[in-house]
């Protein structure tokens, strides 16, 4: 490590070369990303699992597939609309990608020693991130369903809440890093924290893409003949290959109860 750059600048806190500290911190950031990735995967697995099972026909929000099974469930919403529109997910994801690009740009500028421009670009990234947060809030508050309207609503809302938390973290990091670039603490000789923030925001952008991808590809559940809650009604028809609107409606490999042989039929 130490012989790559001849006399390495030394971290004021621990007295080690900054590259050593940076390598350690970078590894820590990667591990933190693994943790957050696993958490995000938990949400996405939940989404896909509930989508594939459609227990008690409770996946779709009321208004799209209101069936007799739903009658003992929550009351249908007044608007009678259904799944969320796709485009807000992708617009917000695009905005996060812009933030990500600006952050990397700011890091490049810092490495080149261009402190003033780097600060300006960082400020621009903050503005975009805050605008994204507002847009995310707008999307949540205008969804055509509430938390209690079935599992699709639950899964989408929890994903979007995760997005909000991610954006808050991003805004905090951007505020800090831009302030530090402005103060000259992040400089040509020690630009690493700026890089870490960029790495983190890259992961956040990936998380947004994953979220937008599942919400816009998995909509109508492939299981259109789900088990009824608490009873043994003989099933009227075989589960048909998943229908209509969903562009990729292949049944999930996870076991759905309708696939198991039913002796009572």
């Amino acid at each position: 490590m130490s012989d790559t750059v001849n006399p390495a600048p030394v971290s004021p806190t621990t007295g080690e070369p900054v590259q050593v500290v940076a390598a350690r911190n970078r590894l820590g950031i990667y591990f933190l990303i693994v943790i957050d990735f696993m958490g995000t995967m938990a949400l996405i697995i939940s989404y896909a699992y509930l989508w594939s099972l459609n227990v008690n026909n409770g996946w779709a929000p009321p208004g799209s597939q209101f069936t007799a099974f739903m009658s003992n469930g929550p009351a249908p919403s007044a608007t009678g609309t259904s799944f969320a529109a796709d485009w807000p997910f992708w617009v917000i994801t695009f905005a996060v990608l812009v933030t990500c690009a600006l952050t990397w740009w700011s890091y490049r500028l810092t490495r080149r020693g261009d402190q003033a421009v780097a600060t300006a670009v960082g400020a621009a990234a903050i503005v975009v991130a805050i605008a994204t947060l507002v847009a995310q809030w707008w999307q949540i508050s205008t969804l055509p369903f509430g938390a209690a309207n079935g599992t699709y609503a639950s899964a989408v809302l929890i994903l979007l809440s995760g997005n909000i938390v991610h954006l808050l973290v991003v805004i905090f990091l951007l505020l800090g890093i831009t302030n530090r670039v402005r103060m000259g603490l992040i400089s040509r000789s020690n630009p690493w924290q700026s890089q870490f923030v960029s790495i983190w925001i890259t992961w956040i952008a990936i998380a947004f893409i994953l979220g937008a991808f599942v919400t816009s590809t998995m909509k109508v559940s492939p299981n259109d003949n789900p088990t009824r809650f608490g009873g043994f009604e003989p099933r009227t028809s075989q589960p048909s290959p998943a229908a209509s609107a969903s562009p990729s409606a292949s049944p999930s490999p996870s076991a759905s109860p309708s696939a198991s042989p039913s002796p009572s039929s």
Partner: peptide, 16 residues
């Protein structure tokens, strides 16, 4: 918040 991830009446799954 009244979501229904694990509430089978409203579409949740205990297996999840």
């Amino acid at each position: 918040f009244g979501t229904s991830f694990f509430n089978p009446v409203e579409g949740g799954s205990v297996w999840l």
